[in-house]
Design a protein around this nucleic acid. Structure first.
Lengths: 230, 230
DNA sequence: TTCATGGTTCATTTCAGGATGAAGTGTTTT
DNA sequence: AAAACACTTCATCCTGAAATGAACCATGAA
């Protein structure tokens, strides 16, 4: 038992160091970053960053991919992102009292953002709920499933549901949103939806942020296909 | 945005210090501990512990209750416990390769344990799944609901579902189990079930551990009421 | 080949944050 | 009242982990 306890505390320590925490936070947008990029956003020297990153790699929190002279770092799996994201939930909790008074920082983030590789925030939650309500998805045993009706809808979006099912990662599971406190669609299907929406220019990534903005085209499309006013 | 980032990194740092991480880990059993008890299990002096604890209080991670000359520390809310528990999920991930070889530490913990105030481990997961399958519960929108059929079942156990609904805390939501990687029942209802099972002597707490053992009486009752072999 | 760039490694130094000791507060016991 | 206990506070010390500087290794471009 002390074994688990020790492993836990070292893991927590690994995540808990300032520079490393900032790096992990920035990686939440699902992109892979080079070592220097992460060094810059954590405000440490390249050597320092390299040191931190190697520790995170060793703990299997991150993975690296070599590409020419660049090394791209990213989460080793979506579970890590989910944990980091869930920790953020404690933040807003602590501020609950003040929450009424001051407007929350980064309203953009609350409205729509990427959570690792899928959509989160108000938009993500509302889309997920609309898809359930319209009968495109069902939720059972902590897993979303696509209905026959839904298959047609996804087909219209040129999303190949069958192919997504074959991936080794989880197909479609709920992910708890820290800003909305409600679940939204994650997993392979969630990632595919975000990708499609970016390709169709329904949403655009905001420079250096996880925030997304919904284009006029996107608003129209969402209104039409899911009945969402955004 | 840097605001959130900074808040996150300080929070992560708060959780990530060795002594504090061990304290939080130990608090996972849902009990409230005195400062000295926590000092002992984290293997630090009383002053040190006091210092750590006050930081955790300030961050709203823990709460204290004065009781005579003792001060009892516990999580300020179930969400904190859920986050700590979810971090443990990354541990087993890292060990996945080795997992096949060595037998896992603490098989007891995997079989049945407390997760803050409810049941987790194989027993917790199997009970939750059986209750869904028997039609006592349904899962929708990341929330369990008790069916009419289920109302009778809970009534037989002398669990007052209506009263639980009135509590301010979440009624019944899924909590991801790090050892089983499947969801189990948490929230007010989950807490009530564990309490009842302890009172009826279906399960007993193991000394100084989050592990639970299932009594012969409990095995018989579970077999009868939910069809679970344990 | 040479140079520039992106990245890592290692040996050394520095310092933030935890540990410690002494003193102080409040509570219970006798 | 006094003593014992549970705990906190403060001022100081100390250490382990991060930062730094100097090489070093690849890759790619000139």
């Amino acid at each position: 038992m002390e074994n688990l306890e020790r492993e836990f505390s070292t893991l927590a320590g690994l995540i808990g160091e300032k520079a490393r925490a900032v790096m992990l936070w920035n990686l939440l947008d699902g992109r892979a970053y080079t070592a220097t990029e992460l060094a810059i956003c954590a405000d440490v020297s390249a050597q320092s960053a390299s040191n931190h990153l190697s520790k995170l790699i060793q703990a299997n929190i991150l993975q690296v991919k070599n590409q020419g002279k660049h090394r791209y770092y990213s989460f080793s799996n979506p579970e890590v992102a989910a944990v980091i994201e869930s920790m953020a939930g404690l933040l807003s909790l602590g501020n609950e009292q003040r929450e009424v008074k001051r407007t929350l920082p980064q309203p953009g983030l609350r409205l729509a953002r990427t959570c690792y590789d899928h959509l989160a925030g108000k938009l993500g939650v509302e889309m997920s709920e609309a898809m359930l309500q319209k009968g495109f998805l069902t939720l059972a045993h902590q897993q979303y499933e696509v209905t026959t009706l839904g298959l047609g809808w996804f087909n219209d979006l040129e999303i190949d549901v069958a192919a997504l099912h074959c991936q080794k990662r989880l197909f479609a599971h709920p992910c708890l949103d820290w800003s909305e406190r409600r679940p939204h669609l994650a997993g392979a299907l969630g990632a595919a939806i975000l990708q499609t929406m970016l390709e169709k220019d329904w949403v655009r990534k905001v420079k250096n942020s996880r925030a997304l903005l919904c284009t006029a085209k996107g608003q129209k499309a969402l209104k039409q296909s899911l009945g969402i006013e955004f």
